[in-house]
Simulated assay, not measured.
Amino acid sequence: MKPCRRRLLPLVLAGLVLALARVPPGRAAESQARMPPAAFSNVAGESFAARTPRGLFSCENSAATDHRQVLKLDGRILYRQPARLDRPEETDRLRDGIIHDDIGCPRVLGGGDGFVVLVRNLQPPQYGVQGYLAVNFREDDPYLIDLGTGYRPKDDAIPDERRLRWMDGGLVLRYFGDLPDSLAAGGASQDPPRANRTILFNFAESAPQDGDACLPLKDTPLFGDLADLIGAPDPSRRMPEGVRIGASKTRVLAILERHGRPYDPDETGEGSGEPPDRLTIPVCGNAGPLGAYPLFLFRDGKLEAIRFEAGDGQDDE
């Protein structure tokens, strides 16, 4: 049956291209933003195809390719896995391949807005270790962004419709496992325990964020432009319950610490042993230098004011 399936694969991909070409112009943006099922296909371990702004992106790893990974973009070969034991090291560039351990093609979870989200085995399937990544096709040289590592069987218990949620300006990914290296705590004496994870990915910033270590804002789009909040009246109405003007510093800190690690954006008051009177905390959906950050100002042990300031609250030095 395998030779027959290999002969059918080009027909399937051709049919997919024709189907995608029939998307009405007026619905192109909506379809691309949500990537409906017709916009991608998977054949477990052997192949996938997905629409991108740069043409059809596909992978094949079957007997037809001598079980070596071949990636194509817009009909041209982007990467062909070499036939030798000393495989090249995986980089963050798509042209260098996705994985080099003879364990098949990744699987497409979804895509749109210039990104495709994939999951692939990081070790032979029996070990149950799988990695999530996003491919950024907005760039001339598409690159990979690590979104974390999942561990079966607990990870596979999450249904795809809950695992990946596509939104205006970003996506939300849920899995059971480890955070990506870019979000792992530095200097830890041991690896944190595997857990249910929520990753937020802002398309404009092309960077993952730990959704369990950031401050959610009320009545605010998750991946919206926080710059609109600068100078907005009554910022406290966007805060979690209990964060209000006049609340005790102890209470406000306790609430903020449920959502991450508050810190002093100016690094003043070091060594005093007391929490500083100026604090900020990362906001969910705002992982990079865009937008604005909340500033909490305290006086005499109480919250005196909240305001949003431009930037991300990080020292540029």
Results as ranks from 00 to 15, higher is better:
residue 7 R to N: 09
residue 12 V to P: 10
residue 12 V to H: 14
residue 16 L to E: 13
residue 24 P to R: 01
residue 26 G to S: 08
residue 26 G to W: 04
residue 37 P to A: 12
residue 39 A to R: 15
residue 40 F to E: 02
residue 41 S to A: 03
residue 42 N to F: 08
residue 43 V to D: 09
residue 56 L to M: 15
residue 56 L to P: 14
residue 63 A to L: 12
residue 64 A to L: 14
residue 67 H to F: 07
residue 69 Q to E: 15
residue 70 V to S: 12
residue 70 V to M: 15
residue 70 V to K: 14
residue 73 L to V: 07
residue 73 L to Y: 09
residue 91 T to R: 11
residue 93 R to A: 13
residue 93 R to K: 13
residue 94 L to R: 02
residue 100 H to I: 05
residue 103 I to G: 12
residue 106 P to E: 05
residue 108 V to H: 02
residue 110 G to K: 12
residue 112 G to F: 14
residue 114 G to E: 06
residue 117 V to K: 11
residue 122 L to S: 03
residue 124 P to Y: 11
residue 130 Q to K: 14
residue 138 R to I: 05
residue 141 D to A: 14
residue 142 P to Q: 02
residue 144 L to A: 07
residue 147 L to Q: 00
residue 149 T to K: 06
residue 149 T to L: 08
residue 153 P to E: 00
residue 153 P to H: 00
residue 154 K to L: 12
residue 156 D to R: 05
residue 164 L to R: 00
residue 168 D to A: 15
residue 168 D to T: 10
residue 169 G to E: 11
residue 169 G to C: 02
residue 170 G to R: 01
residue 178 D to G: 03
residue 181 D to F: 05
residue 183 L to E: 01
residue 189 S to D: 09
residue 195 A to W: 04
residue 197 R to Q: 01
residue 198 T to I: 05
residue 201 F to N: 06
residue 202 N to W: 07
residue 210 D to H: 09
residue 210 D to A: 09
residue 223 F to Q: 02
residue 224 G to W: 13
residue 233 P to E: 11
residue 234 D to V: 01
residue 234 D to A: 05
residue 234 D to W: 02
residue 239 M to I: 02
residue 239 M to C: 04
residue 239 M to W: 02
residue 241 E to F: 02
residue 248 S to W: 06
residue 249 K to L: 11
residue 250 T to R: 08
residue 263 Y to D: 05
residue 266 D to C: 01
residue 278 R to S: 04
residue 285 G to D: 07
residue 287 A to E: 14
residue 290 L to G: 06
residue 299 R to Q: 14
residue 300 D to Q: 08
residue 302 K to W: 02
residue 304 E to C: 09
residue 312 D to F: 15
